[in-house]
Amino acid sequence: MKALSIRKLTKKYNNGFEALKGIDLDVDSGDFFALLGPNGAGKSTTIGIISSLVNATSGSVTIFGHDLQKDRERAKTCIGLVPQEINFNQFETVKHIVQIQAGYYGIGQKEAKQRTERCLRQMDLWTQRDTVSRRLSGGMKRRVMIARAMVHSPKLLILDEPTAGVDIEIRRSMWELMEEVNKQGTTIILTTHYLEEAESLCRNIAIINNGQIVEHSDMASLLNRLNIDHFVLDLAEPIKSAPHCTGYQIDKISDRSLSVGVPKEQGLNKLFEMLTAHNIKVISLKNKSNRLEQMFMDLIGSSAAEQS
């Protein structure tokens, strides 16, 4: 079953800006799905329409078989949204924010309290339950939004840049949490600017640019299409210039580091043989850019070139 099915979705704002130009998108039930794109590409508009915060100009959105226009109540009950920016009442306590949201979904007071406790414990926020939310740290505020989005046990959880602006420790704990939630059967749609986040968490991906889906496939086959990996090599001894190695594109970054483009068919062994022949000793190597980031830049670049 499709968790989300979007057909010919368009959005034209009052100022004439066409944010979405008839996109089609499918997300399978149980998937961990990445929706990526540069700023202004149409990600937030798409998520806004799915979560009823933005009016679509035309097209249809179906959530677990329920049309968002014709079967609004059931469709909305399936969704939980963690928005990009803090949007809860900063004067309410953590406990009340989550309980109020449960009430909006028709959950009675007794059950709402039980669910609130469960969600706040899961988010490690139970000890802060009576704290006024504006006094929380940035990471805690984000976890409050996840607890709030989870309180009615949604089948589809939309996370709009959930880790933006949080430190690496919190980000990693949120990744673990998202994986756990997904393992329990919740479909997750994630938008993020941290592409390593999408690469490590998501199984399927769509890339949106200029209001159009420019890529829609599974993560593994998308990354397989990447022909060249770029590495940075740290050298034991300084060098004067970049060595010439046939089949590889090598640039000098500094006296003790090189940037190397490695075509998949060539591999790394041959490179090291050639470098050894040049008396160059490599002490470490790392990916110059995240693989998905490279693919993303290629797709966005080619999409922009097509448009111009």
Binding site: S51, S52, L53, K76, I79, Y104
Partner: peptide
């Protein structure tokens, strides 16, 4: 936080 209401059914 009107979004809490708009997202909900």
């Amino acid at each position: 936080n009107i979004e809490e209401l708009l997202v909900s059914p």
